[in-house]
């Protein structure tokens, strides 16, 4: 079945009629499901080498294992120069532990222990992107060990010799597992669109010049980081 035909079917059953109509309009320009005989089949070896992701339930987790104790040794060599010996984060590099009970405060600290909902995400990110600038150099076993170490310093697992593997990574429950809710926008909408004599506060209560962190100004940095 072509993807367009599937959208129409799914659209009707799922109630996303507007999306289905959008695709139907598109079909006047391009024939749905038309084969172009371009590209070639991917080989199993190619897929195995590039398909490096895994899912929260542990699906597609690469075969391997490692302990927190093994992970600490790797961490000190490969990670501590940026993340700090205790995961405290040097300069503006990410903090890797702590932050419990801060999410509702004025100064939330988002770490694997306080914020990340899934252990699989830790493995996946370390495996594909770390060490920074030397991506995909860690073995699967090293990555399991590092993930186990981060779970250990965040009190997700208690045993220094805990063995994390493809068999149990989908079973790890992170502390903030239930901390995420679906998008409920649009929100913050006014009851009417006021055009004149609107009842709004117009007193200046904050000025960027006073905060003084704009580049080219000589100022202290006191701000929210995006990364």
């Amino acid at each position: 079945m072509s993807v367009l035909a599937r959208t129409l079917t799914r659209g009707i059953t799922a109630g996303v009629v507007t999306l289905a109509l959008g695709s139907a309009a598109f079909a006047f320009e391009l024939e749905a499901g038309k084969p172009y005989d371009l590209g070639r089949p991917a080989t199993p070896e190619e897929i195995a080498a590039w398909d490096i992701d895994l899912r929260p339930d542990g699906a597609d987790a690469p075969v391997g294992q490692g302990t927190a104790a093994e992970g600490e040794e790797i961490y000190m060599v490969q990670c501590a120069s940026c993340h700090g010996e205790f995961g405290e984060g040097r300069d503006r590099y990410p903090v890797l532990f702590g932050g419990e009970d801060t999410l509702a405060s004025h100064d939330p600290v988002k770490t694997p222990g306080s914020y990340w909902p899934y252990a699989s995400t830790l493995f996946d990110y370390i495996h594909r992107a770390m060490p920074f600038g030397q991506a995909q150099t860690l073995t699967d076993d090293q990555t399991y060990a590092l993930t186990a170490f981060l779970l250990y310093i965040n009190f997700v697992v208690d045993d220094y010799d805990f063995v994390l593997s493809h068999e149990n990574i989908g079973d790890i429950e992170m502390p903030n597992h239930d901390g995420f809710i679906p998008d409920s926008r649009p929100d913050a909408q006014p009851e009417t669109v006021c055009m004149s004599e609107c009842d709004v506060a117009t007193e200046v209560v904050g000025r960027a010049r006073i905060i003084d962190v704009t580049p080219d100004d000589d100022g202290e940095t006191a701000a929210i980081s995006i990364d």
Binding site: R55, P56, P117, T121
Partner: peptide, 8 residues
């Protein structure tokens, strides 16, 4: 997948 860029 719940990747790093859509969770943390």
């Amino acid at each position: 997948w719940h990747t790093r860029e859509e969770t943390s």
